[in-house]
Simulated scan of single mutants.
Amino acid sequence: MLAAESPFEGERENALAAAKRMAERKGLTLDEAAAMREQAAKEKPKQEAKGPSTEAEREFANRFATATHLMDQEIRREKARREAALKAAQERGLDAEERRAEERRSRQRSSNRSNSKARMNPYRHAAVLLAETSLPFREVASITGLDIYQIVGMKLKMRNVA
């Protein structure tokens, strides 16, 4: 019985309690359930996982494969239909206003980034980040654009020597 195989006391107790509940549901004692399990294991030879063996199993497997294939085709057809409908709507100009608004927002974001005159000196920025945050060196390097060796050097120079 599986309950006896566990090296842990609590696990054995829980497995035994679960086995008792299952046996009671079937109206059996624990010994009767264990005997039935052993008998079923002897009667049913282990089959290798070669695929369906009977004609009915092969027929079911074929139908299942066909249905799966058809579902995949239907999904592809629906995606193509959606893309065609979206393209047709864009050509008719149904979302032209939304696209123009998004382009304006995009241009504003890019112009704000490129024309900013208030950029902090990267060395000063790195010093502030190293002193006031616990960001990793790689993150500070990617934010400031400095080399990681420069960041590590700055951190070492910022230490208080005792």
Rank of each mutant, 00 (worst) to 15 (best):
L2N: 11
A4K: 09
E5R: 11
S6M: 04
F8P: 00
E9I: 02
E11M: 06
E13W: 11
N14D: 14
N14A: 07
A15W: 09
A15S: 13
L16M: 06
A17H: 10
A17M: 09
A17S: 14
A17C: 02
A19F: 04
K20P: 01
R21D: 04
M22N: 09
E24I: 00
L28S: 04
L28I: 00
L28D: 05
T29F: 03
D31P: 00
E32G: 01
E32R: 02
E32Y: 01
A33M: 14
A35P: 00
A35Q: 09
E38D: 13
E38T: 09
Q39T: 02
A40G: 06
A41M: 15
A41T: 03
E43M: 14
K44T: 15
Q47I: 07
Q47E: 10
Q47S: 05
E48T: 01
A49D: 09
A49N: 11
P52C: 09
P52Y: 13
P52A: 14
E57L: 04
R58P: 06
F60D: 13
N62W: 13
F64Q: 13
F64A: 15
A65Y: 03
A65M: 10
T66L: 09
A67E: 12
T68M: 15
L70M: 12
M71N: 13
M71G: 05
D72Y: 11
D72H: 14
Q73A: 14
E74H: 07
E74Y: 05
I75A: 10
R76N: 15
R77V: 08
A80S: 14
R81M: 11
R82P: 01
R82W: 02
E83M: 14
E83G: 06
A85P: 03
L86T: 11
L86D: 10
A88M: 10
A88G: 08
Q90S: 09
Q90R: 15
R92L: 15
R92F: 12
R92H: 10
L94H: 15
D95P: 01
E97I: 11
E98A: 14
R99L: 12
A101P: 00
E102V: 12
E103A: 15
E103S: 06
S106G: 07
Q108I: 06
Q108E: 12
R109H: 11
R109Y: 09
S110W: 02
S110L: 12
S111I: 05
S111P: 01
N112T: 03
N112A: 14
R113D: 04
R113G: 01
S114T: 02
S116I: 06
K117N: 08
K117M: 13
M120F: 01
M120A: 07
M120K: 05
P122S: 03
R124V: 06
A126Y: 08
A126K: 01
A126P: 05
A126I: 06
A127M: 05
A127Q: 11
A127R: 04
L129C: 03
L129W: 08
A131H: 03
E132T: 05
T133Q: 03
S134N: 10
S134P: 04
L135F: 01
L135E: 13
F137D: 12
F137K: 04
R138L: 08
E139Q: 07
A141M: 02
A141T: 00
I143E: 07
D147A: 10
D147I: 00
D147V: 01
I148E: 14
Q150P: 00
I151R: 05
I151F: 02
V152E: 05
V152N: 00
M154N: 03
K155W: 04
K155D: 08
L156D: 04
M158K: 12
M158S: 14
V161E: 10
